[in-house]
């Protein structure tokens, strides 16, 4: 499963963006997520991928978020 697919699964588990087609260009705002929801998703991804993500990283799209995770996994 790709990083993007794993992130989408986490979003689905958290009922984020129901009824919206998720693509790399989808923004957190389009998903109706405020800053604290993004922190919650970040924390779930930290658990899923075994990494730590700074809260001030501020990705705006799912694609940017996936890039951030992949960069951390490559460190």
């Amino acid at each position: 499963m790709s990083t993007f697919e794993r992130v989408v699964k986490i979003l689905n588990d958290m009922d984020a963006g129901e009824g919206i087609e998720l693509t790399p260009s989808t923004t957190f705002e389009e998903l109706g997520l405020d800053s604290l929801s993004v922190v919650e998703i970040t924390m779930s991804c930290e658990d899923e991928f075994g990494i730590e993500i700074d809260t001030d990283s501020n990705p705006t799209t799912l694609g940017e978020f996936v890039e951030l995770i992949d960069a951390k996994l490559g460190e």
Partner: peptide, 12 residues
């Protein structure tokens, strides 16, 4: 307060 950072610390 940095709300997002405190939120993360608090929950975990």
């Amino acid at each position: 307060m940095n709300g997002q950072e405190v939120f993360k610390f608090a929950v975990s």
